[in-house]
Computed example of a mutant assay.
Amino acid sequence: MPSKERTIDSVSDWTDAARKLADEVTAAAPEWHDSVSSTPRHQLVPRWWEPIPDSYPFAWGLRTPKPDQQWAEVYADETLVTRVGALHADYADLSDRPAGLPTSSSTLPGLIVRMLHLLDPHKHDQVLDVGTGSGYSAALLAHRLGDKQVTSIDLDPYLVDAARERLADFGRTPRLEIADATGSLPDTNYDRIMATVAVRPIPPAWLDALRAGGKIVTTITGTSLMINADKHPDGVVRGHVQPDPATFMRTRRETDYPARLDHVFNAARDQPGDETRQLTGPIPDLWDDWQLRCLYELDTPDIENRSATRDDGSQLLWLLAADGSWARADSETKTIHQSGPRGLWDDLQRVQARWTAAGRFPLDTMTVELREDRNALIGPDGHWTLEL
């Protein structure tokens, strides 16, 4: 009888688990198979955080590998959150229950491989890895290109020190530096720049440090847009939005991100607004319709959206801004409520109407132009330009 196909759950050695992960995530990028299969992710992420179901405020519990399935989770194609707020999993006790937003993670390997495939580094390229995190991206790059070709930066001294030590434990010694991703860089010349933190705009230092013919792969803060762009002889970095969504944590200078807008939500939850009018169409689903959500964020940045579905299937959508502006759409009462200095629902409708009039073009048909004084995404007809 033919033997059953093994799953990671039944694998006893990490190299088998890593090889299985490599088989899964490098099918479209075979040049990275050896790097993935040779990198001991468990040494870079010995413990991590997982959300506690049905907790509010959102709380996290500490996880370590299960004794009977030692490699099942760490070698799955999943993101492992390593820090919540100021508390890194390395320093945590099993009783800790931090609440808040993730501030560092080891990104799902499949996404890292997709970005590396777009980056397409060559043997002698100097590569800047922005956002060291656990050190996994730096490990893959250093394995394929050599340690001397890779520089990795992170704002957090502990992340840099821990990654340096853990990488060295299995023979990898890329250059790791503590640096603000939006400020000065360790060097002034790179052939490739890849960021696993989101930025907006693209920092001028990146554009200046990128050599002619070099590539940047990064994501745009607050959106699910990944861009891949090349530096041309005229100094302009030009490229395209990629078809599949990808989201990373935004750059930060503080230990934690600003708190969610609960105080605005409390006012918006069920109170009448300064303005009330009839809902004339379906409420957009800003989670499933990620392209509309991205266009809205690019047009009207930093709007927090929350949604709910009642037992009867009726829907609610809240739009919240730090200046106290809010909007609530309710499909049961078919009403829109708005308050504050800005009309957030009006802004969403305006963006939705303009995109509809333009034929709801896929966002991967947008081109990117990055200059030190101006970043822009340009629609396929050239008539809609969104500044970053």
Results as ranks from 00 to 15, higher is better:
93 D>N: 07
217 V>I: 14
148 K>F: 04
361 F>A: 13
287 W>N: 07
9 D>H: 13
76 A>W: 09
122 H>R: 14
350 R>E: 07
381 D>K: 06
72 A>H: 06
336 I>T: 07
120 D>Y: 04
127 V>H: 00
362 P>W: 04
41 R>L: 06
108 L>T: 01
335 T>Q: 08
252 R>Q: 01
298 L>G: 14
345 W>I: 04
313 G>K: 01
315 Q>L: 15
246 A>F: 12
285 D>F: 06
332 E>F: 14
34 D>L: 11
222 G>T: 00
121 P>R: 01
178 I>Q: 14
240 H>K: 13
33 H>K: 13
366 M>T: 07
56 Y>W: 14
327 A>R: 01
197 V>I: 15
39 T>P: 01
294 C>G: 05
21 L>E: 14
281 G>S: 09
261 L>D: 00
290 W>K: 04
282 P>K: 09
15 T>S: 03
244 D>A: 08
101 L>C: 01
45 V>T: 08
129 D>R: 10
209 A>K: 03
332 E>K: 13
372 E>M: 07
163 A>C: 09
28 A>I: 05
205 A>F: 02
145 L>C: 05
121 P>Y: 07
190 Y>C: 04
268 A>Y: 01
304 E>I: 09
113 V>W: 07
199 V>N: 03
289 D>Y: 13
210 L>S: 06
379 G>P: 04
112 I>T: 12
111 L>D: 00
8 I>W: 02
44 L>S: 06
276 T>A: 04
85 G>P: 02
177 E>V: 15
107 T>G: 00
